[in-house]
């Protein structure tokens, strides 16, 4: 929770971070979680912030 708050504070949308406990026996829950994560992230669109491509030099 502290982590997701801090990430949001620094400008990373809350829905980009998900956390869940899924046992190997919980197939349906796993599907639900994955679906929820993908939908949430897709709704936000691609992230351009805090992403490093080629290192910039200074």
């Amino acid at each position: 929770m502290l982590l997701s708050n801090l990430l949001e504070y620094m400008g990373i949308e809350r829905n980009r971070l998900h956390m869940s406990w899924v046992s190997s026996a919980e197939a349906t829950k796993f599907i639900d979680v994955v679906t929820e994560v993908t939908e949430a992230v897709r709704a936000l669109g691609p992230n351009k912030y805090f992403i490093k491509d080629q290192a910039k030099v200074a």
Partner: peptide, 23 residues
């Protein structure tokens, strides 16, 4: 983390260092 001056590396350092101090 990359060792250069890339802004993302610099921010990663500060972000994670801060988080290591949580609580």
């Amino acid at each position: 983390v990359g060792k250069g001056q890339d802004a993302v590396d610099v921010m990663t350092f500060h972000f994670l260092r801060a988080y290591h101090c949580a609580g």
